[in-house]
Write a protein that binds this DNA or RNA. Structure first.
Lengths: 238, 238
DNA sequence: TCACATGAACGAACACCGTTCGTCAATCTG
DNA sequence: CAGATTGACGAACGGTGTTCGTTCATGTGA
C-alpha cells in the first residue's frame, strides 16, 4: 500500500491543481481572511493544498516573502472610488478610507500591513494613486516620497490598533486603562486632566482617522512652504 | 540522587535569587538587548533564570504581558534632556530624539514598541512629558490625546523601519526596490518620476525624522485652529 | 511542637511553528 | 531512448507558548 501511494492519492483527487505561485498566495490569503494571521502558517497553507510544507519553498522563499505577496494580493481587493472632478484632498481621503475599511474587514491583513512591505503590482497602484493626488496638491519629490510612506504607515497603524483592541478584548487593555486612570495626579497632571479622553480612539474611529489625515496633509503643505522659504527650520521666537 | 535534588541544587547555587516579577522582567530585557526579539522567549528567559518555563506564569500572565512590562522597563533607560528654558517644540524634539536613539540602540525594543502597548510607570512619564509640551503649545484635550498617540506611533515606526531594513539586509529589500524601479512608466508615472527618492529614507534618517515630527506638529496646530474657528472658541494666545 | 494549608517551583507533555534535507517520480532535452 | 532537470514530498531538527499535575518548602493555627 506504499509503493503506489502517490498514484492513489492522485487518483482520489484528480482535479487537484498543480502547485503554483498564484495558487499558494490565493490559498494563504483565504486562510488569512478566515482564520486571521495565525491561520496563515506554512504548514496550514500546505495542508489546505493537500501537500507538505516543504513543497511551498519551491515557489516562495520563506514565510516573510509569502506574507509580502499575500499583502499585495489583499490590496488587489481594493475598489478605487471614482475620483473624477473631486479635489485632491478629498480624493486622497476617499481612497485611504476604502483602504482602511479593507483592513478593518480582514484583521489579518491589518496585522500584516504593519510589519510587512508588500510585493507586487497592487501596492504599486496604491502608491501611484497617493503620489498623483499629492502631486496635484503641489507636493513633490522628497516631501511626496516621505509623505506617502507616512500616510501608509498611518493607515496601517490605525487599522492595527483597531483590530488589536478588538482581539485582546478588554484583557490587557483594561489594566492599562486602569493604570492610566489611577496615575498619581501630582506627578502626572496632564494625564489626569485628560482622563477618559486618552482612550477615545476606539469610539470615534472615523473622526480620528479623518483628523490624523488632515494633520498629516496640512503639516506637509505647511512644512514644505517653510522649507521653500528658508533652509534652517528652527524657528526662534522673535 | 532524587530525594534531595532541590537541596543540592540550592547548595550549588546558593546566591540564586528567588523568582520575582522584577527579576523576570530584568532578565527578559537583558536577553532582548543581547539577542534581539527572538531571544526573549519564555523558554529562554526561564533558562537564563535556571528554571522551567512554567515557573514564569506565576508572575506574568503570558508572553504578551511580559512584553508590555519589558517595553516599559526599557523606557526606564530613557535619559530626559534638560528642557529648562527650551521652547516646547524643541523640547519635544529633543526628548523624542532621545527615545528614537534608545530604540535604535536596542533593535528588539523597536520591534516591541510597534506592536505592544507598554505597561508601567515609565511609559506614563513619557506620555506625560509629551502632553505637557503639547499643552504649552496650546494643544489640549482631544487634539493632545490623539496627538500623543500619533507621535509615539510615528517614532516607533521610524525606529522599526530602520531596524527592519537592517535586519533583512538587502534581502527582500533589493527585489522590492527593483520592482519599483522597473515599474511601467506609462502606468506609474509618479513612481517612475521619483526614482531613487522613494528609498532615501535610510540614508537621511535624521532629516527625515525631523521632517515627520515637524509635519505632525504643524499639522496639529493648523488643524486645531480650523476646528477652533468652526466652534467659535479660539484659544491660542497669539 | 506538630499537623496542615498554601502556593511557588517545576518536569513533562501538547500542539504547534519555520525551515532543511534527501529522495522519488515525472517531465523535458538531446 | 538515455539523461538531466525539477516539482513534490516525507521526515526530521530545533525551536515555540502554554497547561497540567505534582512536589516541596514555608508560614500558620492548634
Amino acid at each position: 500500500m506504499n509503493t503506489n501511494r502517490t498514484v492513489v492519492s492522485r487518483r482520489s483527487r484528480p482535479a487537484k491543481e498543480p502547485l503554483s505561485h498564484e495558487l499558494i498566495v490565493q490559498t494563504a490569503y483565504r486562510l488569512l481572511k478566515d482564520e486571521g494571521m495565525s491561520g496563515m502558517s506554512m504548514r496550514k497553507v500546505a495542508k489546505a493544498l493537500d501537500t507538505g510544507p516543504s513543497s511551498l519553498y519551491v515557489y516562495v522563499k520563506n514565510l516573510q516573502e509569502l506574507s509580502a505577496f499575500v499583502l499585495d494580493h489583499g490590496m488587489g481587493e481594493l475598489r478605487y472610488p471614482d475620483g473624477a472632478g473631486v479635489p485632491w484632498q478629498e480624493r486622497l481621503f476617499d481612497v485611504l478610507t476604502a483602504y482602511l475599511h479593507l483592513l478593518f474587514e480582514h484583521p489579518g491583513l491589518a496585522e500584516l500591513a504593519l510589519t510587512t512591505l508588500p510585493m507586487g503590482e497592487h501596492s504599486l497602484r496604491l502608491t501611484e494613486t497617493i503620489l498623483s493626488a499629492l502631486a496635484e496638491g503641489g507636493i513633490r519629490t522628497t516631501a511626496a516620497a516621505w509623505g506617502v510612506d507616512l500616510i501608509l504607515f498611518y493607515v496601517s497603524s490605525v487599522a492595527f490598533e483597531h483590530v488589536s483592541w478588538k482581539k485582546q478584548g478588554t484583557d490587557q487593555l483594561a489594566s492599562i486603562k486602569a493604570s492610566y486612570q489611577s496615575a498619581d495626579p501630582a506627578r502626572y497632571p496632564q494625564i489626569t486632566a485628560l482622563g477618559e479622553t486618552l482612550f477615545s480612539g476606539d469610539t470615534s474611529t472615523q473622526d480620528r482617522f479623518r483628523w490624523g489625515l488632515q494633520v498629516i496633509l496640512q503639516g506637509i503643505l505647511q512644512t514644505q512652504n517653510e522649507k521653500g522659504a528658508e533652509h534652517h527650520e528652527r524657528q526662534n521666537g522673535s
